[in-house]
Nucleic acid binder design. Sequence first.
DNA 1: TTGACACGAAACTAAATGGTTTCGTATAAT
DNA 2: ATTATACGAAACCATTTAGTTTCGTGTCAA
Lengths: 124, 124
Amino acid sequence: MGIPAQKHDVFQAIADPTRRHLLQLLGDQEMPVTVISSHFPMSRTAVSKHLRILAEAGLVKERKVGRETRYRLEAEPLMELKRWLSYYERYWENKLNVLKRFVEQDDNTEGLTYSRLEVVEPEK
Amino acid sequence: MGIPAQKHDVFQAIADPTRRHLLQLLGDQEMPVTVISSHFPMSRTAVSKHLRILAEAGLVKERKVGRETRYRLEAEPLMELKRWLSYYERYWENKLNVLKRFVEQDDNTEGLTYSRLEVVEPEK
DNA sequence: TTGACACGAAACTAAATGGTTTCGTATAAT
DNA sequence: ATTATACGAAACCATTTAGTTTCGTGTCAA
C-alpha cells in the first residue's frame, strides 16, 4: 500500500533519444499513436512501448478517444530532475570552487584520510 | 576530425542510480578508486566501469597520482541537461496551459489534421 | 454485417548493460 | 629484491533494452 514501485523513473525515461524526441513532439499537442509513430523510423509497436515507459514515469498521459489512444506531455515529473540538477549548480556557477579545492586539498597530501560520509541520495 | 563521437552522453550517464551516487560523493573531494568503491556494495572493478562512463560523458575527471587514480566531479556537462530542462519549464510553470490546450483542441475534433512539424532536437 | 482501422499483447531476437572473477602491470613499501 | 597495493583489461554471464513480426480485439465506416 505504498508507492506503486514504478519500474521506470524519470532519469531512465529521458535517457533514450527517441523518448526525448517524443516528449518534444507531444508538447505541442495531444496525438494518437499512429500519428505519433509516423514521425519515427520504427514500427508503431516500438513507439508504443516508448510511450508506455514515459507513461510509467508520469511524463505523458493517455486518453482513449474512440478507437484511438491520444497521448500528451505531462511535464510535472521533470521537476524532480530540476531539483536534482539544482544541487549541482553551485559546482559550475561558483567559479571560486577551483580555488576552494586547491586550498582544501593539496597534491602532496600524504596519508590523507577520506571521510566516510554517510551519503544520502539528494533525490526525492 | 570532428566530435569524438562519445559513446555515452550525459542523459545516459545519469540514468543509473549508482552513477548519480558517485557524482554526489565526488562533489566533496577528489578520491582514488579504492576509496570510492568502499562506499558501494559492488566490486572495485564495477565501480571503475561506472567511473569510466561518467568520464566519457565528461562528468568526472581523472588524475594519476602515484599508483592511484583520483577522480573528481566535473559538473559543467550538466549544463546541457539544464538547457534541455529549461525548454520544458513553461509546461509546468505556466498554469494557463491547461486552458490553452482546452481552447486549442476540442475533444470532438473530427478530422483534425496533426501538423507534421519538422521536429528539431532542442539539445546541444 | 462486413471490412478497415487503431491499438496492445505476446513471442521472439540482437545488442547493450551491469555485474563478476582472473590476470598483468606499474608503483610503493619493507 | 621482494612483497603488497592500486588499478585497468579481458573474458565471461545474466538481465534488460530496443527493436521486430504476428495476432486478437474493439471501434468506426460502407
